[in-house]
């Protein structure tokens, strides 16, 4: 999306209705410095941090997610875009805490035992955070005990498990079966994801849902939280 014309752009001179789409383009191109600058400009103009997050960053990543799904963008480009979003979020995060931004729920997330591949998990964590979820990231290589302890301690709503390997994905069932044995399975929404997984696998192991990418994870989490609130 970048071209020579963009190189001459002075972001601070753009009106809001041009700056925000320009930030979407910059996010798409993984331009972290420009994203940080754009975030600062919008904040200086009096934008609420939550609006900067949702309208400039999350919306930009939504476009990235669509093009990834459609095979237009690949993992390296998505990672660069995510890196740019992370830079923007680093500015916004401390401001969001006190700004009354909506909290949709709390997610405990980590890759399963034996799996150190955390790219997908990190993307989901970032997008969930951007969407208004509180995220407790357990990192990589988590045994069942880590998940259960964190769910209890954090009073979480959602458990997210991620795996990249065919050999590690069955461990998700170990976690869910343990939750059943302890009578706590239905206390949580369980979402699973990772490259070798599919919907059938998610159902077979007793997860609530398989999420094929970060954007789907956010939408699915929102839906389940809305249902949960409707039941209360």
């Amino acid at each position: 999306m970048s071209n020579e014309e963009d190189d001459d752009l002075i972001l601070s001179e753009l009106p809001d209705d041009e700056l925000v789409p320009q930030m979407h383009d910059d996010l798409y191109d993984g331009m972290a410095d420009e994203i940080a600058e754009g975030v600062d400009i919008l904040l200086e103009r009096g934008w609420e941090p939550y609006d900067v997050l949702t309208k400039a960053l999350v919306e930009g990543m939504r476009i990235v997610g669509i093009d990834f799904r459609d095979g237009i963008l690949f993992v390296p480009e998505v990672l660069l875009a995510a890196g740019a979003m992370k830079r923007g979020m680093a500015i916004l995060k401390p401001l969001l805490v006190d700004s009354g931004a909506p909290q949709l729920g709390k997610l405990v997330i980590g890759t399963v035992k034996g799996d150190i591949h955390d790219i997908g998990k990190n993307l989901v964590a970032m997008m969930m955070e951007g969407a208004g979820f509180e995220v407790v990231d357990l990192g990589i290589n988590n045994p069942v005990e880590s998940y259960l302890e964190a769910l209890d301690k954090e009073n979480a709503d959602i458990l997210g498990m991620s795996a990249l390997l065919t050999t590690t994905m069955p461990y998700m069932k170990v976690v869910i079966d343990t939750m059943k044995e302890q009578g706590i399975r239905d206390d949580y929404i369980v979402l699973v994801g990772g490259a070798p997984l599919n919907e059938e696998f998610g159902k077979a192991i007793g997860a609530d849902s398989y999420c094929r990418d970060a954007a789907v994870a956010v939408e699915t989490a929102k839906e389940y939280m809305a249902r949960k609130h409707n039941q209360l």
Binding site: P76, L79, L80, G83
Partner: peptide, 19 residues
């Protein structure tokens, strides 16, 4: 190259940081 490391070596840590 498929991981984009030829153009973006800064991604190395993201891909291989846990190895």
């Amino acid at each position: 190259k498929p991981m984009g490391l030829d153009k973006n070596p800064e991604l190395l840590e993201l891909y291989f940081g846990n190895y």
